[in-house]
Nucleic acid binder design. Sequence first.
DNA 1: TCTGAAAGTATAGGCGA
DNA 2: TCGCCTATACTTTCAGA
Lengths: 163, 163
Amino acid sequence: MQPLDRVNRVLLAELSRDGRKTVRALAALVGLSEPAVRDRLDKLSRDGVVTGYRAVVEPRAVGAGTAAFVALRFSPEPGARAAVNTALEHEACVLEIHEVAGEDCYLIKVRVGTTGELADALDRIRAIPAISHTNSTVVLRTILERPVTVQSGRPIDEQVGNS
Amino acid sequence: MQPLDRVNRVLLAELSRDGRKTVRALAALVGLSEPAVRDRLDKLSRDGVVTGYRAVVEPRAVGAGTAAFVALRFSPEPGARAAVNTALEHEACVLEIHEVAGEDCYLIKVRVGTTGELADALDRIRAIPAISHTNSTVVLRTILERPVTVQSGRPIDEQVGNS
DNA sequence: TCTGAAAGTATAGGCGA
DNA sequence: TCGCCTATACTTTCAGA
């Protein structure tokens, strides 16, 4: 996980905005040949810097328009954590699980279609044995939701000169 | 925003797993011609069901390995909301802004490289005029982080028969 | 729906640090 | 050895019939 060079930062910045940009266009952008860019992309994937390419879907269009954040507490018994993780990961509506500092153990993000489905999901989550307490925050409206972005720095062709 | 038919659900399920899958491969998967699939994809983009294609980047590799959720309260003056939105959106580290039910007004998700940068970001956020109160929850470890997924239902070739 | 031209991608072989 | 190059063969896309 060494720091990325400028070329890789440009490639990542570009692909995190448009994941279908062609290798050819990327090569022209960074001033390298296509095979060189292909090699870099392969390496970024192999190294786990790029974890995948995805279509981003509007949640409301696919029955996931209702979001909530749920703070969880659970007993500190050995094995409880693994059991909780497994149970939560099997819930398709649980999109994020974060271990957090503070009184709560986990903060999770849930997406479902309706408040009724949210109620059902919470029932299932509360039924997970080790979990002792949940505290839900329902999202009324999502104002911004954007992916991790990469700062590309100055464009490649300004690298030299231009004091 | 009518409900998606089975073919579109398969296309979305596939592209949300592999956003670089070729139209040809998708066409073979759903049993339609390439132009037909191309038309469907164009329409899904036009209709806003697919909002884009992106490379997913490992946050730690690009200096965004530290996450926090920050609950915000702000004065209910007219105009305050718009000012807060604008100020938050200009912070590159603010990845999500959710308007929530409950005592807090907003719940936002922040990603930065280090806890020092987190402190700086919080200082800037607290300096936004209308904001009266912040309550941060620092993420110690992210256990799961996955995109909205689409249930494809039964595979296309099982549509008929097979009682 | 088909088909050929254009665009994009993969692979092989070679060069220089 | 590694990263990059050129050249070429192959695949995919797209527009017109």
